[in-house]
Design a protein around this nucleic acid. Structure first.
Lengths: 137, 137
DNA sequence: CCGCTGCTTGACGTTAACGTCAACGTAAAG
DNA sequence: CTTTACGTTGACGTTAACGTCAAGCAGCGG
């Protein structure tokens, strides 16, 4: 909890960014960032009408983009982001979190097996290619 | 090269499957299989008008579905499948293959790093959850 | 006050990956 | 020979993830 900024005097800490800066830095368009906001993946503050992005939003964007690189749909990415900052006051909530984490773990480990398999196949294929190439000389 | 089946007497080897069997076995709909055919990802033979799937098609379907689990678009999956059975008679072709393989390797290894990062984060998060849970008792 | 630049809100367009009919062919079963 | 059960070819619908205008507001440099 860093303190609400709202209409009280701005703390001189807490750096912020505009949507254009954020978009450029993360290599996406502002439309993309807005789309993520429409889906509730980021929730920037407002100075008047303009969006103000903070470190929290940058963290989320990193999670989102990694999720996308891994091919997860945005909806699923949202659930995992929500997981990361869900309320964890009660034991039941903590246990729910731990269960979700296990699910995610299983998924990711399955993917890693798939990747390792694919890499192994690529290797044997590459070996065959190099063999054929040697034989050709 | 197993031998052309066409209109010569059918070898009693070479098992085949119908589209329904293939779809059921791979846990997809026949529409999905047809869609893959439209994109050139599988090319079953025909007995009259009906499709006849062979082992070759099953291999491809396995590649396709793994690609999908890893979140690759079908177009990209097609390029890698094409890579696996491209003509490799000339040295230039073999060298092209090896280059492509390197590209694929790089991509897959990037993904694996992403996965490992995600898993590490999940672990520390899980540890915090368990800590909080212990403290709550 | 004027114009420029950047931000905002719609609203419609697009691509990928199928889903979902509809209408028809065909081959084995009764 | 007529069902019945699959199989086939369109063709249009749908969802996700943005792209692409269009049009308006807002601060600020001259």
């Amino acid at each position: 909890m860093v303190g609400v900024v709202t209409s009280a005097g701005a703390d001189k800490t807490e750096p912020t960014w505009t949507i254009a800066e954020i978009a450029a830095e993360f290599g996406v368009t502002h439309r993309t960032v807005r789309h993520y906001e429409e889906l509730g993946l980021v929730t920037p503050e407002r100075r008047g009408t303009a969006r103000l992005y903070q470190r929290r939003d940058r963290t989320r964007l990193n999670l989102i983009l990694r999720g996308k690189r891994l091919g997860f749909p945005l909806e699923q990415i949202r659930t995992i982001i929500d997981l990361y900052d869900a309320p964890r006051g009660k034991a039941s909530q903590l246990e729910y979190c731990l269960a979700q984490i296990d699910d995610r773990r299983a998924d990711l480990e399955h993917r890693r097996r798939d990747i390792d398999d694919a890499l192994a196949e690529l290797d044997t294929f590459a070996a065959r290619c190099r063999e054929d190439l040697d034989r050709l000389r």
